[in-house]
Structures are given as C-alpha cells and as structure tokens.
Design a protein around this nucleic acid. Structure first.
Lengths: 96, 96
DNA sequence: TCAAATTACGGTCGACGTAAGGATC
DNA sequence: GATCCTTACGTCGACCGTAATTTGA
C-alpha cells in the first residue's frame, strides 16, 4: 500500500472520473487507471464499477474511501506540523 | 512524503538504531540511512542526532514521531478494514 | 466522431544491494 | 578489530508518457 494509491483513489472517487483526476493530479489517464487497478488487486476487490460513461464507487469502495480520506488528512496534518516545527518553535502552535 | 519514509522513521525511532531497523524491515543499513536522510531533507530539519554509537531522536524528531505513528496506525486500520470487507460482509465487524 | 477507460510498449530514472570509507568503542 | 552510519557505484525494475484499442454517447 502506497500513499499515492490512496491519493489517486480519493481524487477519482471525488471527481467521479479517471480523466478528471488525471488532470487534477498532473498526470495521464493511463497512469491513473493503472494505479487504481494496482490498488484493487492489492485489496482483492474492485473499488469502482466501470460504466459506459465514467465510473462509480462500489459499496466496498465507499467504505474504503472514508478511511482513505482520513488517512490522507492525517498525513496532511503531519506536513503542517512539520512546517510549524521548521519555524523554530517561535510560536508554540502545536501546544494546543 | 511517502509512506515508506514514515515506516522506516518509526522503526528507527523505536529501535534506536538504523541497523536494527534495517533487519526488521528486511532491507540494508545504507538503504535505511538514505531514506531517513531523504525525509529529513524534505522536512528541512534533522530527525536524529547521529552519535558515536547509534542515534537518538531530536526534539523535533520526537514531535514528528508521534504524528507519524498515528498516521501509520491509520493506514494499518485501513488494511484491516480492507481485510474485513474482503470477507464479503459476512460479519458486520465495522458497524461498531 | 468525440469522450473515456484499458492495453501495449519503450525509455528513463530511481531504488536497492554490494562494496568501500570513516568513526568510535 | 568490531560495530554502526555514510558515501560511492552499478544494475535492474518500475513508473511514466505516447500511441493504439475498445466501447459507448
């Protein structure tokens, strides 16, 4: 499991489209397709139903989405914390 | 920021040694050293004090450790959730 | 015919391990 | 000399983008 897989997955889930996610992620459609597929193979089930026009989250995909979103949020907070720390503790922001 | 960097960092912090972490992670000491260094460069500060014998978390590293641990826990829970889902919802474990 | 996802393919870049170096006990 | 971290270096695999294919509006 890699962070990029989760990021790509969340983007696809929110935009409802691989191609739109590719734009947002500054990459290409085939790349998004491959990365989502790799995540699905790793998990052992499909995250999206491939439809005539676009995609849609499966039931299982919906459950994974919620947890994946939280995980990414958590990593983002870590980045924010790192930025605060880099400020040399001038303001003790993290001491809530 | 990649998940592997955080996993390696947490292992090093908990074991207090790059070489022990390398064993635990089934990789080599130089690899651990490089990955930790890449994370430090990305964050903009050092996570460990390199000492005569072994290493020790810096103050900033300690703060990052706590958040990194949570993030990894979060990803682990995602894996657990995925495993439960794969069981075809026979038992609705996730409906706490 | 256009839009969207998948498959195929080739090049490049990075990740890994081995080996060598440096330092400390 | 042994242990531990770092640097150097070569190789092999994976990732990425382009192009071709498929399917549906």
């Amino acid at each position: 499991m890699e962070l990029k897989q989760l990021q790509y997955f969340v983007a696809c889930a929110e935009l409802g489209s691989f191609s739109k996610a590719a734009d947002e992620l500054y990459t290409t459609q085939p790349n998004v397709s491959k990365i989502i597929k790799s995540l699905e193979e790793e998990l052992g089930f499909e995250l999206f139903e491939r439809q005539k026009r676009g995609i849609q989250l499966t039931e299982k995909g919906q459950l994974i989405y919620e947890q994946a979103y939280k995980a990414i949020e958590n990593i983002n907070q870590l980045s924010i914390l790192a930025g605060e720390i880099e400020l040399q503790l001038k303001e003790k922001v993290w001491k809530k």
